[in-house]
Design a protein around this nucleic acid. Sequence first.
DNA 1: AAGTCTGTCAACCGCTGTATA
DNA 2: CTATACAGCGGTTGACAGACT
Length: 339
Amino acid sequence: MGRSPCCCHDAGVKKGPWTEEEDRALVDHIQRHGGHVSSWRNLPKAAGLNRCGKSCRLRWTNYLRPDIKRGNFTDDEERLIIGLHAQLGNRWSTIATHLDGRTDNEIKNYWNTHIRKKLLRMGVDPVTHQRLPPDDLLLAVSASPTTTILSAAASQLRGLNTALMQVQALQFLLQAVSGVGNDVNAAAAAANGGGGLVPSLSAAADNNAVLNASRSVVPGFQDLQLTTMTRPLLVSHANHGSADHHPSYIATDDVVQRRLNASAPPVVGGGACAEPLAVALASTAYRHQVAAAADEPVNGFAELILSEPIEMPSMCSLEDEDHFWKDMLVESSSFSLPL
DNA sequence: AAGTCTGTCAACCGCTGTATA
DNA sequence: CTATACAGCGGTTGACAGACT
């Protein structure tokens, strides 16, 4: 024989939101017993409540307990939750033991409503805490040559060492993409028979999740303009159908590389992040993608005017305006559980 | 102003490991 | 030893409020 049936199976047990009277009755009862509950099953009857013992326990542990902390989560708490989640996964009760006054339910809700969305906006998988694959990252971009170009470039982001470097490189990539439509639409339209490699690049940049993510991470991102590094590269790629056989690619890529090296911003990881991206943009794989996307024959590089000064994105803006997320990104890869 | 959408969070559901009759 | 409830946990739901159209 086992135990007697649980009260939760009684048809008359009340469910739904708790009233003030019920809260008071529950708190009074528990406080009369020194704040300790020996049997949740017997509590409702003893406290004069028409509730299931399970419901009483949840109400007490998640809401009525005197040591529960109310109010918004602090940056430190948020940082701690992210780090703990990276280590523990969805073990909310274990995570809650590391945050004074926070319940597992509260942390779980906060994760699902705030942190999870923040991470997704940044292109970070909230489950694995890894960067989202390019296919997911660029989900909002319709299938087009644009998609393959962006995917190829974005895939190179994998090679960067820290999350901050990835964000910086991503910003740099998107700067190139978002600025392209301003100046070279005509050339692109000609190159694509009025179609739209570059226009679609621009449109994609306006609409895709990556751009939004970058905007959320890097304040003022939408104001960035195309650099002299990226414009000639994109224009030239857009105009070349047979990239592998054109010697100008080598020269162009070389120029791009040298300019990048000379203009790497003086911030942590700046040069290190810019360089792999330059390689990404100039890579053979990328060249193939663009070559496949372009229909027109090679037109030469007359338009490669490299007179403007290099304008690197304001990568330092992360430091100026969003300490928390920058720090979180940098630290997330090396987080370890506090002892 | 009214209807719709979206975000939030308390509460419930259902499962699992443990305790107990 | 077995059957069953308990306690705890993570997932999900639904009511509500505020924003948006």
